[in-house]
Design a protein around this nucleic acid. Sequence first.
DNA 1: CTCTTATTGCAATTAAGTTGCAAAAGTAAA
DNA 2: TTTACTTTTGCAACTTAATTGCAATAAGAG
Lengths: 126, 126
Amino acid sequence: MAIVRKTKSVHTLLEVMKQAGEALSVVDLVNRLDQEMNKTTVYRILDRLEDEGLLHSFQGKDGLKWYAQCQDCSTEHHTDMHPHFQCVQCGKTTCLPLEVTIPKVPNVKIQSASLLLTGLCEECLT
Amino acid sequence: MAIVRKTKSVHTLLEVMKQAGEALSVVDLVNRLDQEMNKTTVYRILDRLEDEGLLHSFQGKDGLKWYAQCQDCSTEHHTDMHPHFQCVQCGKTTCLPLEVTIPKVPNVKIQSASLLLTGLCEECLT
DNA sequence: CTCTTATTGCAATTAAGTTGCAAAAGTAAA
DNA sequence: TTTACTTTTGCAACTTAATTGCAATAAGAG
Ligand SMILES: [Mn+2]
Ligand SMILES: [Mn+2]
Ligand SMILES: [Zn+2]
Ligand SMILES: [Zn+2]
């Protein structure tokens, strides 16, 4: 297995994720980190951090890739199988700490499930 | 409302969808119809057929857009809210005729839910 | 410090999807 | 069938997310 170095760039990126507190799209991250590191570096670090179990990713409603912090994952245990919510108006995207009920499907072996809910967030509702 | 003409291209595309019987990615469709019509035309026809309620679309696991035939939709009634399954090995992608249980999320208004299951299909299992 | 390996920046590339515009095809009335 | 009008199509150019190759740089072990 490859060693994963905690470089300055890695620290910076993780700090941004922590500050945000919610999910961020890669596009957003690339913009936010424009002064700190190269676009390619953002993609590569996100990839490594996901392998390491510090972040998890999912596809947003527009096909963009999003990342969020994991609660309790590691290289061996990737247990972040929760649904996500994306506001159609403001774009705010969050992890939902809910159990996802995987339906039984005959004759196939389900390996993972991704559930994306879209609608209006609390702020956009009022 | 705009008139939607059943042109030769539309007929050809619908025929391909019918023959396939299962979901097809736009990329796949563009390739299959390469001799019959332009890429842009494929995108535009799919768009119209979705508006019309003859097809529905969803995002595959790799962010590609997929289309499948609707069972009972129309311009007014878009009631195709079922989950989809995508085989990680052969790519075969199908509609699952199952009720999707939308979890209750406090303080937000859920408008739609998309559930994508991935794993191994029947053929790839054996 | 020195060596080795992982990481990074940069420019080029890939590929899905979109857009503007002129030409072609469909529809209905004359 | 012709005419007039509207929708659809092809084509080329464009946009943008994501990837790749390679040389330069930074991290860490000893
Ligand atoms: Mn999450
Ligand atoms: Mn379907
Ligand atoms: Zn919102
Ligand atoms: Zn398969």
